[in-house]
Simulated assay, not measured.
Amino acid sequence: MILISACLVGHRVRFDGGVKTNDLLMKYNERGRFIAVCPECFAMLPIPRPPMELQRTSGEKVLAGKGHALDKNGQDTTEYLITGAEKVLKIAEAYHVRVAILKERSPSCGTHFVHTGKFDGKTMKGMGVCAALLEAHGIKVYSDEEMTVGRLESLLSEDKLRDRD
Rank of each mutant, 00 (worst) to 15 (best):
Asp23Thr: 13
Asp23Val: 12
Asp23Ile: 02
Asp23Met: 15
Leu24Glu: 02
Leu24Met: 13
Leu24Pro: 09
Leu24Lys: 10
Leu25Ala: 06
Leu25Val: 09
Leu25Ser: 03
Leu25Met: 06
Leu25Trp: 03
Leu25Glu: 05
Met26Phe: 02
Met26Leu: 12
Met26Tyr: 02
Met26Gly: 00
Met26Asp: 07
Met26Trp: 03
Met26Arg: 05
Met26Ser: 08
Lys27Ala: 13
Lys27Ile: 03
Lys27Tyr: 08
Tyr28Lys: 04
Tyr28Phe: 11
Tyr28Thr: 09
Tyr28Val: 04
Tyr28Asn: 04
Asn29Leu: 13
Asn29Ser: 12
Asn29Pro: 00
Asn29Trp: 11
Glu30Gln: 14
Glu30Leu: 15
Glu30Cys: 12
Arg31Glu: 14
Arg31Pro: 00
Arg31Gly: 14
Gly32Lys: 04
Gly32Phe: 08
Gly32Met: 06
Gly32His: 07
Gly32Leu: 09
Arg33Gly: 05
Arg33Glu: 09
Arg33Trp: 12
Arg33Val: 04
Arg33Phe: 12
Arg33Ile: 06
Arg33Tyr: 13
Phe34Cys: 06
Phe34Thr: 11
Phe34Trp: 09
Ile35His: 04
Ile35Trp: 05
Ile35Leu: 15
Ile35Tyr: 06
Ile35Gln: 11
Ala36Asp: 05
Ala36Leu: 08
Ala36Arg: 13
Ala36Tyr: 09
Val37Asn: 03
Val37Thr: 04
Val37Ala: 03
Val37Gly: 04
Cys38Gln: 03
Cys38Ile: 11
Cys38Leu: 10
Cys38Asp: 01
Pro39Asp: 03
Pro39Tyr: 05
Pro39Arg: 08
Pro39Asn: 08
Pro39Val: 05
Pro39Leu: 11
Glu40Ile: 02
Glu40Ala: 11
Glu40Tyr: 04
Glu40Leu: 04
Glu40Asn: 02
Glu40Met: 10
Cys41Ile: 15
Cys41Arg: 15
Cys41Thr: 14
Cys41Lys: 07
Phe42Asp: 10
Phe42Lys: 10
Phe42Gly: 00
Phe42Ile: 05
Ala43Trp: 00
Ala43Cys: 09
Ala43Ile: 01
Met44Cys: 10
Met44Thr: 14
Met44Trp: 07
Met44Leu: 14
Met44Ile: 04
Leu45Ile: 14
Leu45Trp: 00
Leu45His: 00
Leu45Val: 07
Leu45Glu: 11
Pro46Leu: 02
Pro46Val: 01
Pro46Arg: 04
Pro46Ile: 01
Pro46Asn: 09
Pro46His: 09
Ile47Met: 01
Pro48Ile: 08
Pro48Cys: 02
Pro48Gln: 07
Pro48Glu: 02
Arg49Trp: 06
Arg49Thr: 10
Arg49Asp: 00
Arg49Phe: 07
Arg49Gly: 06
Arg49Cys: 10
Arg49Asn: 12
Pro50Tyr: 13
Pro50Gln: 15
Pro50Ala: 14
Pro50Ser: 10
Pro50Cys: 13
Pro50Lys: 13
Pro51Thr: 11
Pro51Asp: 03
Pro51His: 07
Met52Leu: 15
Met52Val: 06
Met52Tyr: 08
Met52His: 10
Met52Ile: 11
Glu53Lys: 01
Glu53Trp: 05
Leu54Lys: 08
Leu54Asn: 06
Leu54Trp: 07
Leu54Arg: 09
Leu54His: 01
Leu54Phe: 11
Leu54Tyr: 11
Arg56Gln: 15
Arg56Gly: 08
Arg56Asn: 15
Arg56Cys: 14
Arg56Ile: 06
Arg56Glu: 15
Thr57Leu: 12
Thr57His: 12
Ser58Asn: 14
Ser58Gln: 08
Ser58Pro: 07
Ser58Glu: 13
